[in-house]
């Protein structure tokens, strides 16, 4: 009797262990399914011209499909647009985010800092589609038109809280002795921050910036109401501009261009995953 019960409990224990392992491994399946689907459908679309030519018009694509030829053109307009908007967003968000993070790390006990810290969480949790609405109201309406600037403002707002948090957290885990040693050597606070604390925190902050980029680079919704999209390569920042995720959305909605979806997705997916792995690697190196 007693023996039987022990057996039953041991079976339950084994069952739970195997169940956990099985279900946990199941979670890995979507990653490989998505990677596989995008890779298999997209690899043969990648070519030199895919990266150097702009999107074809629907008419051109239709003609090519009718003639049984591959669709001409590529996603150059999207890549350039993404780079321009991301570049502008990074230039503003990184220094501002680092300074704000430094403020939070230095004044963590004050009421105001706690308030700012709470707002950072709030902004980080705000759905991206709402950031799109806001940028539309703030930038697109006053400028009377969609533009690369508007798109970059949206990306910038989304990156800010991520950079603030990573800066704050990295600065907070630096040993206090580092700052004290700097101050003892006669440096003032600003100099100690610039020459000692920020350089020591570089790894963590850099990882944070990479993660922030990888988070916003695939954002579609906020760009739909701000950058709008554009079918040719453009460098003007006050005009509508395209972006890789926007192109994927266009291809998804246009039956003639559907063949291009997977090449663009493959490019975006690989880029994002590599950024993620790279930031993980850097974080690991830096922690050692």
């Amino acid at each position: 009797m007693n023996n039987l019960k022990i057996k039953k409990r041991l079976v339950q224990d084994k069952f739970m262990c195997w169940g956990v392992c099985l279900l946990a491994t199941l979670t890995a399946i979507p990653l490989f399914a998505i990677l596989g689907k995008v890779l298999l459908s997209g690899y043969d679309q990648l070519s030199w011209s895919f990266f150097t030519e702009p999107t074809p018009t629907a008419y051109k694509a239709m003609k090519a499909i009718e003639a049984g030829e591959p669709i001409p053109g590529g996603i150059a307009n999207g890549i350039i647009g993404t780079m321009i908007m991301l570049g502008m967003a990074v230039v503003v968000a990184v220094p501002l985010g680092i300074l704000c993070g430094a403020f939070l790390a230095e004044n963590s006990k004050t009421r105001f800092a706690q308030f700012v810290s709470y707002l950072t969480d709030l902004l980080q949790g705000t759905p991206s589609v709402i950031i799109g609405i806001i940028t539309y109201v703030w930038v697109v309406v006053p400028m009377k038109g969609y533009s690369a600037i508007a798109g970059s403002v949206a990306l910038c707002i989304m990156m800010l809280p991520l950079i603030v948090r990573s800066t704050e957290e990295t600065l907070k885990i630096l040993p206090a002795s580092l700052k004290e040693a700097g101050l003892a050597l006669g440096g003032n606070k600003a100099r100690v921050m610039m020459k000692v604390q920020l350089p020591s925190a570089f790894g963590g902050i850099f990882t944070g910036v990479l993660l922030a980029i990888s988070r916003v680079i695939g954002e579609t919704a906020p760009l739909m109401f701000t950058a709008l999209g554009c079918s040719f390569v453009r460098f003007a920042v006050d005009k509508p501009i395209s972006a890789v995720p926007l192109l994927i959305w266009e291809f998804f909605n246009d039956p003639n261009l559907q063949e291009l979806i997977w090449g663009a997705s493959l490019f975006l997916l690989l880029f994002v995953l590599l950024l993620n792995l790279l930031s993980k690697y850097i974080a690991k190196k830096w922690n050692q």
Binding site: A24, I34, K37, V38, S41, G218, F252, L268, L269, L273
Partner: peptide, 24 residues
């Protein structure tokens, strides 16, 4: 390894999840 996989899952842009959902 498993937490790296879930981290990568978190990094996939939502539009690509949408495509996968739509076509698979």
């Amino acid at each position: 390894v498993l937490s790296t996989i879930t981290d990568l899952l978190a990094g996939i842009p939502s539009i690509i999840y949408g495509l996968w959902g739509f076509y698979t």
